[in-house]
Lab assay of single mutants.
Amino acid sequence: DRYEFNINGVHFTIDDAEEELIKLIEELLKRGARAEEIEEVIRRWER
């Protein structure tokens, strides 16, 4: 599934997002994580 979200006006799209990654990102968003922090999480996840 495609997952899309915005952080401070920056648009992100993840194709074939796994449910666990989506939950992790949503938790980070609730905590007010910065875009750079979430980008790093996504990079690590994709390795």
Rank of each mutant, 00 (worst) to 15 (best):
R2F: 08
L28P: 00
L28S: 09
E36L: 07
R31S: 12
N8Y: 02
R34D: 14
L24Y: 10
N6D: 15
H11K: 11
A17P: 14
H11W: 15
L28E: 07
E46P: 15
Y3D: 02
N8S: 06
Y3H: 03
E40D: 12
E37G: 03
R31K: 14
V41W: 05
R2E: 04
A17E: 04
V41P: 00
N8P: 01
I25V: 08
F5P: 01
E20S: 09
K23N: 13
F12G: 01
L28H: 12
R43E: 08
R2D: 04
R34P: 12
E26W: 08
G9T: 02
E46L: 06
E18D: 14
E46D: 13
K30G: 12
E37R: 04
E27M: 12
F5A: 03
L28M: 13
L24S: 09
R44N: 13
E18G: 10
E26A: 07
E20F: 06
I14W: 03
N6H: 13
A33E: 05
E39L: 15
E18W: 03
R47G: 14
E37F: 09
I7F: 03
T13W: 14
F12V: 07
R43N: 14
F12Q: 01
E37A: 07
G9K: 00
E37M: 08
A33H: 05
F12E: 01
V10Q: 11
R47Q: 15
I42M: 07
I14H: 01
V10I: 13
E37V: 07
Y3R: 01
V10Y: 04
E46K: 09
N6A: 08
A17D: 04
W45I: 06
N8R: 01
H11Y: 13
E37K: 05
I14T: 01
E18N: 11
A33D: 04
E4M: 01
L24K: 11
D1A: 11
R31C: 10
A33Q: 04
F5G: 02
R47S: 15
R47A: 13
T13N: 05
I22Y: 03
G9V: 02
Y3L: 03
I42T: 03
T13C: 12
K23V: 14
L29V: 10
K23H: 12
L21R: 00
E39V: 14
I14P: 01
L24N: 10
E37Q: 10
G32P: 06
E40N: 07
G32H: 08
E4Y: 02
L24C: 10
